[in-house]
Amino acid sequence: MNLKPPAAPGTRNLITDVPGLMVGQAQDLNLRTGVTVILPDDRAVAACDVRGGGPGTRETDALAPENLVEAIDAIVLSGGSVYGLAAADGVVSWLGARGRGYGLVNRPGVPKSPVVPGAILYDVANGGDRDWGEDPPYRRLGREAVEAAGLDFQLGTAGAGTGAMAGSLKGGTGSASILAADGIAVGAVVCVNSFGSVVSGDNKSFWAAPFEMDGEFGGQGSAGLSAQPDVWGLAKADPQARMNTTIACVATDVVLTPAQAKRVAVMAQDGLARSIRPVHAPFDGDVVFALSTGRRPLEGGDFTIARIGALAADCLARAVARAVYEATPWPGSDVRCWRDL
């Protein structure tokens, strides 16, 4: 008889249940945009997988297993379309001032170079104030987000998900975690700005319903799920290129190589396919990062990598639903939210 306890969400049911990770967020509700920073305690192995047809990214080439730098100092998810890529500048400056980063030449007077990959979503057409001239707010928001890093953070209309829309419903920032029976920790954080819908038809049943744990996104169950070819329910009616993106990060405390982290990122993308319909379209910019905090040795070889990837996909599907479930309207707006269905 197997007496091991079943897998369960961590104490917070956030990606920060993975030991060695913090998350910080900053948002401006007047601008209807924001930034989310994933900050490891120490440099961490990372990888990314890009599936959307209109991505916006920074430093992703540095994550390739064949390249020199094998670890990152932070990952930045941001609103703001191309302007949002500057959020990483604020994080780089903050880290560099604290002596964190990659040191090719280790001698006094030579600053380290923080490695901060990032991805952006398109939220600049949501009615927020964009009269910023030559001074977009994202470098400032990036610095504010990393300064706010901790173990607890807000879901829904917060961080990089502040200005997001999930199909025709309000999108947002979501997170989830799982602690396996043998102690492996896996978590996900996601900012959902998808072309596709996260619910079946026009009802409250999340596509991710079969993966829900402990009623974390309303306990609606899967009885209402039904999919018909070429019928997308509450997807966006008029998608345009580069206007839709779901950006995410999954993490584990198990030691991974860059190549193993890449496989986890690839597998984790299935979490988006389980929770958003359709996904990875030409006008989506879907990107998933994977990182390892390296607190637990890898035991079991490739089979454990497969387990971590599967757990990451499940966590990501749950996080997508939680993002929309927790989303609230922007102040003074009548944007439709899941709770309005």
Rank of each mutant, 00 (worst) to 15 (best):
V124P: 00
V124I: 13
V124C: 02
A125R: 13
A125P: 00
N126W: 00
N126Q: 12
G127L: 01
G127A: 07
G127E: 01
G128V: 00
G128N: 04
D129Q: 04
D129K: 09
D129G: 06
D129W: 03
D131N: 15
W132G: 06
W132D: 14
W132E: 12
G133R: 09
G133C: 09
G133K: 08
E134Y: 07
D135S: 14
P136I: 05
P136T: 09
P136V: 07
P137E: 00
P137C: 06
P137Q: 06
R140N: 12
L141F: 03
L141P: 05
G142N: 10
G142E: 03
G142L: 01
G142K: 05
R143D: 11
R143C: 09
R143A: 15
E144I: 00
A145R: 05
V146T: 08
V146L: 06
V146S: 03
V146K: 02
E147W: 01
E147Q: 15
A148E: 03
A148T: 00
A148V: 03
A149V: 04
G150F: 12
L151I: 02
L151W: 02
D152T: 13
F153K: 06
F153S: 09
Q154C: 03
Q154H: 10
Q154P: 00
Q154D: 13
L155S: 02
L155W: 06
L155Y: 00
G156H: 02
T157V: 12
T157P: 04
A158W: 13
G159S: 07
G159K: 06
G159W: 07
G159Y: 08
G161A: 11
G161I: 09
G161Q: 09
G161D: 12
T162Y: 10
A164P: 02
A164M: 13
M165G: 02
M165K: 11
A166V: 03
A166N: 03
A166M: 01
G167D: 04
G167V: 11
S168T: 15
S168W: 06
S168H: 04
S168A: 14
K170R: 14
K170Q: 10
K170W: 03
K170T: 05
G171P: 06
G172L: 10
G172H: 11
T173H: 01
T173Y: 00
G174A: 07
S175C: 10
A176P: 10
A176Q: 11
A176R: 10
S177E: 09
S177A: 10
S177H: 09
S177N: 11
S177Q: 11
S177L: 11
I178Q: 12
L179D: 02
L179H: 11
L179F: 00
A180T: 14
A181N: 13
A181Q: 13
A181L: 03
D182L: 05
D182Y: 01
D182A: 05
I184R: 14
I184L: 11
A185C: 14
A185H: 14
V186I: 13
V186Y: 05
G187P: 00
G187Q: 00
G187V: 01
A188Q: 08
A188M: 07
V189A: 11
V189Y: 07
